[in-house]
Design a protein around this nucleic acid. Structure first.
Length: 159
DNA sequence: GCCAACGTTGGC
DNA sequence: GCCAACGTTGGC
């Protein structure tokens, strides 16, 4: 059991979108960074906790608690010439990119990035490191506990 | 829109 | 394998 932070642009897929999806589950597509991919492919397990983070928006921050709901499988957008995420170098035999399913578990108050920066227990988070751009990053148990305490999720597990 | 930081590409 | 150029990320 591990914990992760995963970034999504809410204009693309917001936490509310995941809550509204069938089974509260979406496919996490479009990761095009090898380090992030390797976390998804090699280190994630079904049931791992996910901090669902909104990036590239007016108020970036943690929007909810989710969990990993599948093992890795090929990201179909890499083969789709019409997709923004098309990768001409990916073939069925030598695929580069993978997806996992992510299921929404609980929602508390919105925790803005600006507030996270003021919390001592979070000061070593990968997310907060200068220049960090990883869209999928590991979260420690202590960081997870601190975030869950701050947002006080109201339903499901997540704690 | 700006810009710092980072990752990837490709010539050599 | 080096490294300059380029593209992308993402907060502000």
């Amino acid at each position: 059991m591990r914990y992760w932070l995963m970034k999504s642009e809410p204009d693309d897929v917001s936490f509310d979108d995941v809550l509204a999806a069938p089974e509260r589950t979406v496919s996490w597509y479009g990761v095009r960074n090898y380090q992030a991919r390797n976390f998804m492919r090699d280190a994630m397990s079904v049931g791992d906790g996910v901090l669902f983070y909104h990036s590239s928006c007016a108020l970036p921050g943690v929007a909810g608690i989710a969990e990993i709901a599948s093992g890795p499988y090929p990201d179909a957008t890499q083969f789709d010439p019409a997709s923004h995420y098309h990768d001409p170098k990916a073939t069925q035999e030598t695929l580069r990119w993978i997806s996992v399913d992510v299921r929404a578990v609980a929602q508390g108050r919105y925790l803005p990035l600006s507030e996270m920066r003021t919390v001592a227990a979070l000061e070593d988070m990968v997310l907060l490191k200068k220049g960090s751009r990883l869209s999928v990053s590991p979260v420690t148990q202590a960081e997870w506990d601190a975030v869950v305490a701050l947002i006080a999720p109201v339903c499901g597990k997540g704690a």
